[in-house]
Structure formats: structure tokens, C-alpha cells
Design a protein around this nucleic acid. Structure first.
Lengths: 367, 367
DNA sequence: TAAGTCTTCGTAAACGTTACCGATAGGTGA
DNA sequence: TCACCTATCGGTAACGTTTACGAAGACTTA
């Protein structure tokens, strides 16, 4: 039924399917104009309006222009909701990350947003707060919203991947970045975790540091593993011993970082350099070392991953391997849209986002 | 037509409205299970399935349980899209901010997310990148997505508000925060801009600083105005002269901040303290002053707004007025849901989020 | 002028869900 | 036995949009 007219009308028997409807005028101003409104005012059918607004064929220029003009006046914009509903797509992608507040992820989001906008997509963001349970709920919610694709960086708790494996097999386009899941063959954005760690440690060695310790993150995280491998590989290349007491897995917390420093200082041979895989830990260690009166970089060299403004400001400034988070986001989004637009070619396709070694005072023993 | 059956059937004449449809089997695995699928498998109608899944009355416990069990097995989740479409709401709110990467806004977003999740809403985020044009486009897009409400912090370019005024008058629930628009009577989240500035400047005066300069943001921004008013008010209270040459409006850029310092140093009476309303500018000035060999806090006191980790790390550590961004987000979202749930009581309702003065070395002349 | 072609527009199905109304069956009361 | 009630379930309109199909008019061609 359209504003008083019957909607379904059997022509062979003149039977009306809908009863009369008493038009109770709702005085509420409506937020959205619909093509139905336009059609009624213009005295044409909704199909004609739709054709006019979409610049389809089968319409006279005169009608088209008139309709477009009216649509502009009523500042009509199509209900993307209904449109997506009709076409089976939502023009929306979902993003699951551990925490928005972390500068790395904020940068990634920014990159995602930019590329999504260019493609005419909107972005729905969820944070897991490093909780597996929340992550599952988030993905469930995004799924219920019928996102066209998913961009995921897992929580550090996540060790079971049956949910996303299931979704992947059902054909939901998705791409992993940063906190990657190697159990599902989704396209992934790789960062130079191994390479960066290698370069950082090699740089320390070249500066004359001999006893280099690593403060890694949770052992389940791939970035922990990769960066540790880079660390070990650099030591091996330069024939330095690999000592278990120099390798610690933490939880990225400040408490753990400082406790590790304490523990290392108790050793008969304390390390003369520390590679903290998280830049925040590196900054915290710098501050702590100064409190303890340990000279940086003379007595202790410090390097880390991730170049936030902090690394530049702390004294001495921190040598880091920078990961270009915005770039990661852009590439991840671009890859996702690639998958969305041609699902057939869904073979695994990894992309490497290059980083850059930025040398500052905290590691310059030779000056 | 539903899987081979005719859809519209006139009972009084046995006329079928739809022609036969050759079922071309699509081999593609479908991502989403629908109630139609469940209905077909169970041999019941979609109405029954809907009732069962929503725990409505008019259904036998046996049927309900069986349907719910099957739904679980097929891991069905309702298409929130279609549901919202049907009920005229989307359970989605839109957020427009200048930039995700700024820690303040990241914090706000985090707070918004949390409250939205509690209310069963999803969040759609757009960044204007401080461009008026982008902002308008963003809002247009969110509107097209039929968000149930809007949370806005304007770009620094935005001076015309006809778009949101229009939307507000049409009854779209929305709330302003941080970069507020005073021309539209939306509910607003106020921060202690005046109070914070007042406390910061009074603190400087109590420390013995006499010639206090202010580096403000764009004059159009309300936070610039409010913080400047607090600055002036504190000076007046303590009978200090208000000198135009000590009051500068910039664009928050590093270049402008450093140029301002240079200009101030050229004065016959250079300021002995600087209040930068943006913490980043404050940090940049600290670094620059050190380069110039100006002792902080003895020769120059520095204070700012916004307490990021940076303020703690920079040397000397920065005295700030902290704004609790997460809290701002939480309160803004809560207020928005308030408006959404009872539109009648849409009178203007402002909420004040309190801040806190955090004193550190950069302003401790007396030590 | 009859038949065919092209232009332009209307009709209604479809997407997934909810809600209203009606239908059916079984039970209960007189 | 018949009317009435209740529990349970089915049918389908509606939300806004796109689109396949058909219809009607205008125009062209033989």
C-alpha cells in the first residue's frame, strides 16, 4: 500500500489484498527523505525515481533532471542500508584490534579509513582489549552487521582460531595484520619483524655492545617469535653467544620490564644492551636506568620497535625500528578490497610492509 | 517466491502473480544463515522461527527449543541490518572527529566504544582531518547509513553549521564534545577549559612568574577562547597586566610554536612563562628552549593542556591540566543514548567533565 | 496504413525481519 | 452436541531500494 492506494491488486478478478488504511497523520518531522516521497511529489513511480537518481538508461532527460533537482532540494540521500540490503552487501568493513589508544593501532586505523573512504566503504571498529572473549563477541557483532569484510589483529590472549577459520571457509573476505594468525590461510600483512630485529641487534653489535638482552612479549605472539628470531640470527652471524638468561618473555607491562632490568643487574655478567621489542618498555627502561644511575648509552645501550613521538623526546632519544602503521593500515585495507572485488582469486597473498631503522643516541656507544 | 513456491496467490480467483522460476542452484557457500533457512529445515513458517528466536509468546516450548537448538547448530545470527531496517533503527551511532591518531581523540573513542557496547550499539567512525569539506561529506555518509545518533567534534576549519543545524531540527539525536558548536542547541560535553587555564596560570603566578604568555589555537575554536578567558581571568585576579604581545593565536603547528618563542624572545621584556594550550606545543617549546639554552623552569616556566605519557617523559616533565579523554567519550555516549531513548525531553543538557591539575617540574620555579 | 522499433515509464519481486491478523485444532463448559 | 476459548502456528504487509519485465505511446519504414 502506498499512501492510501492498494498495493497488490489482482487484475483478473479485481481483488484487493490490503484493506483500507486510515491515514493517521504523524506530525513528527522525518529525518530522511525516500524515493517514495520524491515519486509522490513528482507524480511518477519509484522505479523512475530510482533510475533518475542512478543515471540509468530508459529515462528521458527532462524527467531525470527534474527528479534530480527535486532530490537535491529535499536533500535526499539514499538509504545505504536498504540499498545494501537489497544488493546483499553493506559497503561496510569491520576492524578488530586490541586497543585504539595505542598509537600503532591508531595509525593503522587512520590508514584503513583513508583507503576505505576512497573505495566508498565505511568502517566499523571494535577493540578486544586483549580479551579473547571480547574478540569473539566483537566478530560476532560485526558479522551480524553483515560487514563485507574483516580486518583483524588478534588479542594477545587469542590462541584458538576456529571462529575465524569457520568464517574464512564460508568465504568471508578477511585480512590479518600485525597480530597474525598462521593457522588460517588468510592474506596477511607482514611487517619486517625479523628484519627489523636483526638490524637493531646488528647495529648494537657494530657499536661494540657484546652482551645483548631481549625483552620480548608473550611467547604466543608471532611478533614476539619473529623479533626473537631476528635477534638470535644477528647474534649468530656475529658469533656472539646466545644466553637463555638474556632472553625474557613478558607481557609488555611496565612492572615486568623494570623487574627484568633488576634481574639482569643481579647477574654475574649483566647485559650491556637491551632490545625491548615494545617501544614503551624501551622508554620505561631508559627512565629507570637513569634513576639507577646507569649511563646510557655508555654503560647500557637501548633499542626498541615502533617510532612514536615519545622515542624522539625521551633522553637520550631512542633508537628504533619504525613500522609505518598508517602504511600497514592502507595496505591491509587495499588487500581486503582486492579480495572483496574478486573472490575467485582468493589464494593466499602476503604483503610485506617495509620498516626503517632510525638511529638515535640511546645506542650510540661510539658516539 | 520462496524457493519454488509462488509468493502472492489470490485466493478468490486462484491467480498466481509470479511465473515459475527455474531454480538455478548456486553452489556458492553462503556466509549467513537466515530464518528462512531454518524455517525450511524445520518445516515451519518464518514467523514461527522469528517468534522462537525472540522468545516471544504464542509458541510451544517444544518448538521453541528445537528451533533454538537448530539455530545454534547453524550458528545463525540475525541480520541486524534487516532487523534495523524493519524497525527503522540501525543500532549504530556515528562519530566525527578531526583525527584518530591524536591521543585525546583515541581516548574519547575508547570511552565511546565501551558505553556503546554496553547499550548494544555499534560505532562508525569518521575523521575529518581538520577539513570542513571532509566533515560535511562524512556526516552525509553517516546519515546515508542511517545512524541512530551522532557524536561530533568539529574540525578547526568548521565555521558554518547549517548542515548539523538542519539535522538537529529534523530530530536527529546528536551530542557535541570538545570542539563544540554553540550555534546549535545540542547537548554538549563541556570540559574545564576555563577552569583548567585559570588553575594553570594561577599556579604559575604562585610560583613567582610575572610575565606569562599564552600560545592559543585558532581563534574560532571555542577551546581557544575559553582557555584564553581563563588565562586572562587569572591574570586579572592577581592584578597582573594583560599584554596583547603575550597573547598569540596559532594553528597548533610546531613551526608556529617555535616562531612564537623566537618572537617573544625579541621583546624588550620577554615572558618568563608560557602557557601552551596544546600539550604538543608545550613539549616542542621545552625541547626548543633547551636548544636555545634557556633554563627550565628557572628562566622559563611552561605549562599545557592534556596529559599524555609524553608530558611525563619530557625533561623537565610538563605541568598540565589533564582532561580525561576516556571519560569525555563515556559521558558523551551516555548522553547520546539518553537522547535517543527519550526524544521528547530533548532540552539542552550540558555535562561538565572535570579535569585535574598535575604539577611537574616544568613550572616549579620555587622547586 | 500496417507493422515494426525505440523511448519512456510503471508493476512488482526480492533482500531478512517483525508484527498483526487469521486459521486451525484441541479442550472446556453448558 | 454445540458454542466458545486457548494455544499454537501460518500468511503476509512493511521497511527502501534495485531491476527484470511488460506496456503504452511515439516514431520510422515499407
Amino acid at each position: 500500500m502506498i499512501r492510501g492506494k492498494v498495493r497488490f491488486h489482482c487484475k483478473s478478478c479485481d481483488y484487493h489484498f490490503t484493506q483500507e488504511h486510515t491515514e493517521k497523520a504523524s506530525p513528527q518531522k522525518q529525518v530522511h527523505t525516500t524515493i517514495k516521497d520524491i515519486a509522490q511529489i513528482m507524480g511518477v513511480s519509484i522505479a523512475t525515481v530510482s533510475r533518475a537518481l542512478n543515471n540509468k538508461a530508459d529515462i528521458s532527460p527532462k524527467t531525470r533532471d527534474a527528479i534530480q533537482k527535486l532530490a537535491l532540494e529535499l536533500d535526499y540521500n539514499p538509504n545505504l542500508f536498504a540499498k545494501g540490503f537489497q544488493r546483499g552487501e553493506t559497503k561496510t568493513i569491520g576492524v578488530v584490534i586490541p586497543n585504539i589508544k595505542r598509537p600503532f593501532f591508531a595509525g593503522v586505523l587512520s590508514g584503513i579509513q583513508e583507503v576505505a573512504n576512497e573505495h566508498g566503504y565505511r568502517v566499523m571498529i571494535c577493540q578486544s582489549n586483549e580479551s579473547y572473549e571480547t574478540e569473539v563477541t566483537n566478530i560476532q557483532g560485526l558479522l551480524a552487521s553483515h560487514v563485507d569484510g574483516l580486518l583483524i589483529s588478534h588479542s594477545k590472549e587469542t590462541t584458538r582460531f576456529n571462529q575465524i577459520k569457520n568464517l574464512f571457509e564460508k568465504g568471508l573476505p578477511m585480512v590479518h595484520f600485525d597480530r597474525i594468525c598462521s593457522e588460517v590461510e588468510t592474506p596477511k600483512i607482514r611487517q619486517e619483524d625479523f628484519e627489523g630485529a636483526f638490524q637493531l641487534v646488528e647495529h648494537l653489535i657494530q657499536q661494540g655492545y657484546q652482551r645483548i638482552a631481549i625483552l620480548a612479549g608473550p611467547p604466543e605472539l608471532l611478533i614476539s617469535q619473529k623479533r626473537k628470531e631476528g635477534y638470535i640470527s644477528a647474534l649468530e652471524k656475529h658469533d656472539l653467544p646466545i644466553k637463555p638468561e638474556y632472553m625474557v618473555h613478558g607481557d609488555f607491562s611496565k612492572e615486568f620490564a623494570l623487574a627484568s632490568v633488576d634481574a639482569w643487574q643481579q647477574l654475574p655478567e649483566p647485559p650491556d644492551a637491551i632490545f625491548a621489542i615494545h617501544y614503551l618498555n624501551a622508554v620505561e627502561i631508559i627512565q629507570y636506568a637513569k634513576e639507577l644511575g646507569i649511563e646510557i648509552p655508555q654503560k647500557l645501550g637501548i633499542v626498541g620497535f615502533g617510532d612514536e613521538y615519545l622515542a624522539e623526546i625521551v633522553e637520550p632519544a631512542l633508537t628504533v625500528f619504525h613500522l609505518f602503521p598508517q602504511k600497514v593500515g592502507e595496505v591491509a585495507a587495499a588487500l581486503l578490497f582486492d579480495v572483496i572485488s574478486n573472490k575467485e582469486a582468493r589464494q593466499q597473498k602476503d604483503v610485506l610492509v617495509q620498516g626503517q631503522l632510525i638511529i638515535r643516541k640511546s645506542s650510540l656507544k661510539k658516539g
